[in-house]
Design a protein around this nucleic acid. Structure first.
Lengths: 233, 233
DNA sequence: ACAAAAGTGTTGTTTTTACACCCATGC
DNA sequence: GCATGGGTGTAAAAACAACACTTTTGT
């Protein structure tokens, strides 16, 4: 049984993969492996297979391209202009993913020619992928202003300074150190570790890790680590 | 030119249409006009046509079913389990819409057998439409806690009491009258009109309307009309 | 001893909450 | 004149923003 007189179209997922190099937000891009636009820079994407949901497809594609599983991913928008893909009509369900850049070991970078790019040094992308990046970045700012998602970009142990640098990179602004760390610590999301990071200063800065049960419980609660967040959208 | 060895699938939009009857939130449902599940209750939906984006399709379907244009609509989630439609695989891009229930004149209710339902009196729905409704409601609560979208459910002139009843309906709780009206008036979104609504009390309550330029400017700003919003998600 | 980053407290302001009484009117 | 919902103020608490100095330690 099937529906009559309806047009079936391709469905794909594309994923904006964010990482943080300690100073700036980066995007993981690949050189497209097939025609058209072969070897042009592109987001990681792939078609939705018959047996999988779009979410499944996005997870699979990410795993294929990066070797990573259990990654934070969020569906944020469908891109569906009839002519967005010149070959044939393709709906793209767009996701953004946040990964700890250290976990991405370049396993597959030869195969896919993947590379990290600063947002300011991003090459031209195929199709409507630049628009996707723009919207993903906006979505990231929006969501991160309310919920503690940026932790997903950091290694398990991190200093408050690293976290603040991350927030400052995302919002392209400076936050007051004292207010930032006070707010952060008052959330109860962090556990202070006995070790210090001695790489970035003589004195050394204490490492923290997430209190995972608190983190999960408070994930949906509205946080306010970003002053006047709406001015950034 | 087309992509080889890929499966094309149907793409549809479904729309959760919210209205407010002065006391409670309602949903507009229709009896499905074709097999399978003909005459079962369903969300308003339709297939995405070759020449239109999903957003276009959602707008068209809403106009066809209700006669309404320029409606507030928001894409909120793709539903794509391979077996969600028993006939054949169909992706559904889900939207929610907020309409002034008075504007819906039942123009087409005969054709589509459309009816308003309280959430508590909703009939069984086809496919995964009940899950869609649940998620749409959650999305509505989330968004309305931050942005002044609920105004879209009211007529152009309304009293503060009506608005508060609306918020109380959405969050199923009572708000403090004085705090609510103070917060609301302090947003600068409202303009007091000289007329009063005399229907609901002897004294009469002043009507307000939106200050449209302020409204558009502040739409993205985070509001706080709902105390402890996260407890509702 | 000095350079470089870490860490920490106070104060004034704003925002939020909780709470109770008078007002205007139609009947 | 009374019942009904409309409308308003205040005080205490909490959250927030602005701001500067001391600590640690490797060189």
């Amino acid at each position: 049984m099937h529906y009559k007189n309806q047009t079936r179209i391709l469905a794909a997922t594309d994923c904006i993969i964010f990482g943080f190099d300690g100073l700036n937000i980066k995007l993981l891009l690949i050189q497209r492996g097939f025609e058209p636009e072969k070897n042009k820079w592109s987001l990681m994407g792939g078609f939705v297979e018959p047996s999988e949901s779009p979410d499944d497809a996005a997870v699979r594609v990410l795993a294929e391209c990066t070797g990573l599983k259990n990654v934070y991913m969020e569906q944020f928008q469908v891109f569906g202009n009839p002519d967005r893909d010149p070959v044939e009509r393709t709906l793209s369900i767009a996701y953004f993913a946040l990964i700890d850049i250290n976990k991405y070991q370049n396993q597959l970078s030869d195969k896919y020619h993947a590379e990290w790019f600063l947002l300011t040094e991003m090459p031209k992308l195929i199709f409507d992928h630049e628009e996707m990046v723009k919207l993903a970045m906006r979505q990231l700012r929006y969501k991160a202003a309310l919920h503690p998602i940026l932790f997903k970009l950091l290694p398990p142990k991190f200093t408050i300074r690293q976290l603040q640098t991350l927030y400052e990179g995302v919002y392209q602004t400076k936050f007051d150190d004292r207010n930032f760390s006070r707010k952060l610590l008052s959330t109860g999301l962090l556990v202070k570790l006995p070790e210090k990071d001695k790489l970035s200063s003589r004195k050394g800065a204490f490492y923290y890790e997430l209190n995972h049960s608190n983190y999960q419980e408070n994930f949906e609660a509205f946080l306010n680590l970003v002053p006047n967040p709406d001015k950034f959208f």
